[in-house]
């Protein structure tokens, strides 16, 4: 990609989300940001961003009702495509979730989304600031500089990729070691919210254009 052109991000509008936060954080990180009109037929962005606040079932139903799932598939079949899911947006990338009742996800990465079980003295919901540890050595160079930084998490479910190679980093909540960054080819997700993680988060967002 030519360096004199701004990298373009299109944000999927799930209708239940913190669009404003993600919009301003990506702008702050130097991207050209558009919130996608759901009537748009074809996506042509350097990065397709799926934010996430809300429940899995509401999210996936909304995507299907508006045929966004099909548009994502079409987009990902093109060259130079890249999707980044944040929090619920990351969870939606997986095959299924047990939230409320069993729900099918976008099936872009094999794995399922499960609920935090007995965490001992910790709460059953993970809200707050945590660090991550890079698990996949191929990504050490890229992400290890963030290992001593705190990122913001807010979730009661987490993704379990089937394949170890799709786990880029781990974070801890109570007794559970969960996948906090996932990647499979041009599909990428973080359980934490970089847009809510202060300066470290903005720096992380800037880094995304290095992996597309």
């Amino acid at each position: 990609m030519a360096t004199n052109l701004k990298c373009k991000i299109g944000i999927i509008n799930l209708n239940v989300n913190n669009l404003f936060s993600i919009y301003k954080a990506c702008s702050e990180a130097g991207y050209k940001v558009t919130v996608i009109d759901n009537k748009l037929k074809n996506y042509s962005y350097d990065i397709l961003l799926m934010p996430g606040v809300g429940a899995f079932s509401s999210g996936i139903n909304y995507l299907k009702k508006n045929h966004i799932d099909e548009k994502i598939d079409n987009y990902l079949n093109k060259k130079n495509s890249f999707i980044y899911g944040i929090c619920l947006g990351m969870q939606l990338l997986f095959s299924s979730s047990e939230e409320f009742k069993l729900n099918r996800g976008l099936k872009l990465i094999k794995g399922k989304v499960v609920k935090f079980q007995n965490q001992g003295s910790e709460n059953k919901i993970n809200i707050g600031w945590s660090k991550f540890k890079v698990f996949n050595n191929d990504y050490n160079k890229l992400f290890s500089e963030f290992e001593n930084k705190y990122f913001y998490y807010i979730h009661s479910y987490y993704a379990k990729p089937n394949l170890r190679k799709n786990i880029i980093s781990h974070s801890f909540h109570g007794k559970t070691n969960f996948c906090s960054i996932t990647k499979k080819d041009n599909i990428f997700g973080t359980q934490f919210h970089p847009e809510k993680s202060g300066e470290a988060g903005i720096k992380f967002l800037k880094k995304i254009k290095k992996i597309i």
Partner: peptide, 9 residues
């Protein structure tokens, strides 16, 4: 509300 928006929010 928690069903629609997720408990954590």
């Amino acid at each position: 509300a928690s069903r629609k928006f997720g408990s954590s929010n």
